[in-house]
């Protein structure tokens, strides 16, 4: 595995590598060499099986990570190629010409993350979400809970109580009032002194 990674590094410059298990390694490659490197891994190193293509949204770093997992049937090992994309303009070269399976993955990623793969067949056709009019749903900023609350309606008559609040109300109403008032006073003072600094 190390040898393969070293050869890959010589040819394409591996930005980061990480061996998760003896038969699974993650390598980070630059976007512009990724397809070449994947072609190299497929045709020269024998990683003939495209296991899957996936994307991860790192919204904090304003980045999408594409992961291509390739499998070598002789070595029974996987190399996962990671490519980091700018979240503002997520475009990646297509590799539909290498594997027939790739076009489906790319179509799904286009739909779910909005990452474009120009040239990939039918990439703009909706695959799963016919008639979807929101942002690509697998992006982190898409809030499923909020969406469902806005789109659907809850069953009526459902409400839950917080044990703490109910016990305050039922068992120690005055003491709870004391507690919150004192807490408020103490915190006010603390915040004021913090502001003064």
């Amino acid at each position: 595995m190390e040898d393969i990674l070293n050869r890959l590094d010589q040819k394409f410059y591996v930005q980061a590598r990480y061996v998760q298990r003896p038969n699974l390694a993650f390598v980070t490659l630059k976007k512009n060499v990724a397809v070449q490197a994947i072609t190299y891994l497929r045709d020269v190193e024998g990683f003939r099986h495209l296991v899957m293509i996936s994307a991860v949204d790192y919204i904090e770093q304003n980045m999408f990570q594409l992961t291509y997992i390739l499998h070598n049937y002789q070595l029974h090992s996987d190399i996962a190629v990671r490519v980091e994309l700018d979240r503002e303009n997520p475009v990646m070269d297509s590799l539909h010409h290498l594997w027939a399976a790739a076009q489906v993955y790319q179509r799904e990623i286009k739909e779910m993350f909005g990452i474009d793969f120009p040239g990939s067949p039918r990439v703009d056709e909706p695959m799963i979400l016919e008639g979807w009019d929101n942002i690509p749903p697998m992006r982190k900023e898409f809030d499923t809970k909020k969406y469902s609350e806005e789109t659907y309606f809850p069953r009526e008559g459902r409400a839950s109580c917080d044990p703490v609040k109910i016990m305050e109300k039922k068992l120690y109403r005055v003491e709870a009032e004391v507690k919150y008032e004192i807490k408020r006073v103490v915190r006010d003072n603390r915040n004021k002194s913090a502001d003064a600094n």
């Binding site: 109580c161 917080d162 109910i166 039922k170 068992l171």
Partner: peptide
Amino acid sequence: DMVESYPITANKGDSG
């Protein structure tokens, strides 16, 4: 949901 359930009432160590 946690709901109030007659005849159970809040008590020490039991929210009711």
